[in-house]
Amino acid sequence: MKNTWITVLAAAGTLGAAGAEQTLNGAGASFPAPVYQNWTYTYSQSTPSVRVNYQSIGSGAGVNQIKARTVDFAGTDDPLTLEEQQKAGLLQFPMLTGGVVVIVNLPGVRNAQLKLNREVLADIFLGKITRWDDPKLKAVNPSLTLPGMRITVVRRADASGTSFIFTNYLSKISKEWTEKVGAGSAVKWPVGIGGQKNPGVCNNVARIRGSIGYTEYTYAVEANLSMAVLENRAGKFVEPSVKTFSASAVNADWKNAPGFYMVLTDQPGDESWPITGVTYILIRKDCPKNVKDAMRKYFEWCFTTGSTAAMKLNYVPIPGNVIELIRKEVLK
């Protein structure tokens, strides 16, 4: 699968607008960009009368653009509350579920070998654990020979929904993180160097020995980066996969989520991946009827035909009963 979605993105950039009667422009989160680029390209080819574009610029920038009316829809992994949606004249609905993973560049350590419990993970990003041979890391990984190297933390430099998911999780597992840093798409990081969007974080981790960062799962797979095994809420160490992402989402009560606001980090269950996130779409309440009709058809296609591509790219499609809620409350 390596570089599959990158190839699609390149092809999408060459797709001409000739013959298209309508263009839909979207921008925002890089978390779902691999599948969004696949969808926009495939849909635009199969529906010549409509061209759909999506720019991966980060959740924060995407929200700003939909508020400024410069795009027709925005992608964000940092959901807006119902009050925030109403104030901005926006509607929100979930599009996909996926996982944020911890990536490392550690000599001699392969994928899914390094274990990180909740305390150790938080302490690394707080800057309290600064070396890979720290006794706390050794205690969790007795079978690994950890090098005597300094830890380089890599985090996002831009306002990021992926950062929101990650820092939201750290806030749930560490009182110190909550008090000193908190959760958000842009926080004051205690330590680390920044990377632009998910690819920037992956590139930095790939080139810096002894580094650790976080990214969306598909980016880690595409970049062939080693991922850590994490301790979940049940005290079990789990590997990131579509199966463990799905386990986190199984009990989501969307019917009682005002404005479809929900955060799926640190869910119960032996198989639940602890840093599971939902990525959302934002549209304007007052968008022109022809634009809303075109978006309704496009998103219906994404929910149905597009679900196969989503699963191939390691995302979890939204369940059918939730799609029905979205149809009734947003895409009506």
Rank of each mutant, 00 (worst) to 15 (best):
G235A: 10
S272V: 09
A223V: 07
N256T: 12
D270I: 04
G192Y: 15
M311L: 09
I275Q: 05
T304D: 15
V250T: 02
M311Y: 02
Q196Y: 07
G277F: 09
E231G: 05
T304H: 14
I281W: 01
V291N: 10
C287M: 06
F260I: 04
D266Y: 03
R207Y: 00
P190K: 15
A252V: 14
Y298C: 11
G194I: 13
V278M: 02
W301V: 10
C287H: 01
I281A: 12
S226M: 00
Y280Q: 03
K236D: 04
T244C: 04
E222A: 11
K292I: 04
C302R: 12
S241N: 01
A228V: 09
A309Q: 13
R207T: 04
S307D: 15
G269E: 08
I193N: 04
T304L: 15
Y298M: 12
G194K: 15
E300A: 15
S241A: 04
E216Y: 04
N256K: 13
S246P: 03
Q196G: 07
K236R: 03
V205Q: 05
P199K: 15
D286M: 00
W189H: 11
I281G: 00
L230I: 09
N251L: 11
A247C: 03
V201G: 12
V201D: 12
K255S: 06
R284G: 09
M311P: 00
P190R: 14
N198E: 15
C302Y: 00
G269R: 10
P288Y: 04
F299H: 13
W254L: 03
S272M: 08
I208C: 04
A223K: 06
G235S: 11
Y261Q: 02
S307W: 06
G259C: 05
D253Y: 11
M311H: 02
D253W: 09
F237R: 11
I212D: 02
A206K: 13
W189Y: 14
N256M: 10
S246K: 06
Y214S: 10
F303W: 14
V278I: 05
V291C: 11
S226A: 01
W254D: 01
L230C: 12
G306R: 14
S226Q: 01
F299W: 14
T218A: 13
E231Y: 06
G213A: 09
A234I: 06
E216D: 11
I212S: 04
W254N: 00
M295N: 03
R207M: 01
V278Y: 09
P288M: 05
K255R: 02
